[in-house]
Design a protein around this nucleic acid. Structure first.
Lengths: 240, 240
DNA sequence: CGTCCGATTGAGGGGGGTCAAGCTGAGTGG
DNA sequence: CCACTCAGCTTGACCCCCCTCAATCGGACG
């Protein structure tokens, strides 16, 4: 389901993602130490699983290219998507509690991730306090992101959730240097709906409505934000 | 708003909470090292603030007795309660990203917390790897808890959310050695509703209905679970 | 050109929000 | 000791938002 690749070039210290990923806030010297930790990448085809619930946790994963969804699943087959992750973001931060994965991570397109082994990280920890602190920040950031999602689900109407979703994707892509206005949704309407606690029909209706009202332009999964400020106003502030 | 107390007795190594709090999985020797980190407690009256959004983060806090709610607030006064925390649980794990609090933490009753200073913790980290790992587990646990909340809001009907809420409180109190069947809700109907993404009327209606159907007994905020297994069946599994 | 999966759009109904009117119990002051 | 107050809770009536069910459409791929 996935292919392991030994890293030979373009390590952390020279990676284009730089501050957008694990090395954030680390000195160039510390980044070169980091290069020694990350020796491997994994390449996933569209639909491929990075890990499944129950797997032993030996590493966390930094997305180098592509995108991944993470979802909780229960015995009855019920699914809840908990995140859509983009390059620079770290996958597998839940699961550190018992060192067992609780989520299922699936590639939404061809995706490459850097393997950050926990044992390597713990081995270097005493010599690299900045890594411990950065890792702690990443965990805390994930808590904040998840709490924000809670506020979105608890406080916003369906149209506000869809608008907030578009803006969130837009801003994260913009931070990566892509266009904030024009982008391609890598996930289906059903996946967006599941993520937002709505049905796919409701998502589709609001996207169509936004397009009809001139807020966005839509061609299948291609989105162009025509009036981002109007979307922002619609989404309001769900405690952010 | 709060009173600082220097710790003179009943430190981590002898605290009754023991494995239910920070020291989980640490050796008795390591716990005695932990005693040196935690030198202070804070006592809060009902309604008192432990910290507010924007405050500098210098510590996280272990609840020793009482209970605390944490909530996100935005400029327009919109509030979203993100958690009700019981003894043994750690407050302030969000906020480590920028070392600024993002939430407002308020005591639901007279509450005492142990101050776990970050600088002390980082100072001892190299000599105490078990603390780093335990702290990482706690952060990961909080991610899992928050994701579970997302699933609850996205997947469950209002009656299922209320049932799941009662069972959650029950189980956490049982883990502390209290009765799983009979307990007092420290928060108002409005706070429960906010937390669950419902109105206080809906919460009240379902509690009344559960009581009328013989699933629980209700006297103001005193709850007795008469048929916990029926509640469990009602709540179903929101991906857990 | 036919098939298929995902997306769109419509019609209808129900779950939960809104608004409003009482109720309850704890605290207060006479 | 008891009326008074007030915040929190309960219960009812109404209605709207979003889900459900269904039909149709559209592009991708053989």
């Amino acid at each position: 389901m996935h292919k392991r690749i030994t890293v030979t070039s373009d390590r952390c210290s020279t990676c284009m993602l730089g501050d957008l990923c694990l090395p954030l806030g680390m000195s160039q010297r510390d980044r070169q130490v980091l290069d020694q930790i990350i020796k491997e990448r994994i390449r996933l085809p569209k639909g491929g699983s990075l890990f499944q619930a129950g797997d032993a946790v030996t590493a966390v994963y930094g997305i180098r290219s592509g995108s991944i969804k993470t979802q909780l699943e229960d015995a009855s087959g019920q699914v809840q998507i908990t995140g859509f992750l983009l390059p620079g973001e770290i996958v597998g931060l839940d699961g550190l509690l018992q060192l067992r994965q609780v989520s299922h991570a699936v590639a939404l397109e061809t995706t490459e991730v850097c393997v950050i082994r926990l044992d390597e990280m713990d081995g270097l920890a005493p010599h690299l306090p900045s890594l411990q602190q950065q890792f702690r920040r990443l965990l805390s950031k994930e808590i904040g992101r998840s709490q924000q999602m809670t506020a979105t689900l608890a406080l916003l109407r369906s149209d506000q959730r869809v608008a907030a979703f578009l803006l969130n994707i837009s801003q994260r892509l913009a931070a990566l240097g892509y266009s904030a206005e024009a982008f391609v949704l890598r996930m289906s309407r059903a996946e967006i709906g599941n993520y937002l606690g709505l049905t796919l029909e409701t998502v589709s209706r609001w996207l169509s409505r936004f397009a009809r009202d001139g807020l966005i332009r839509l061609q299948q999964r291609e989105v162009t934000l025509l009036q981002p400020q109007a979307l922002q106003q619609l989404a309001g502030t769900a405690c952010d």
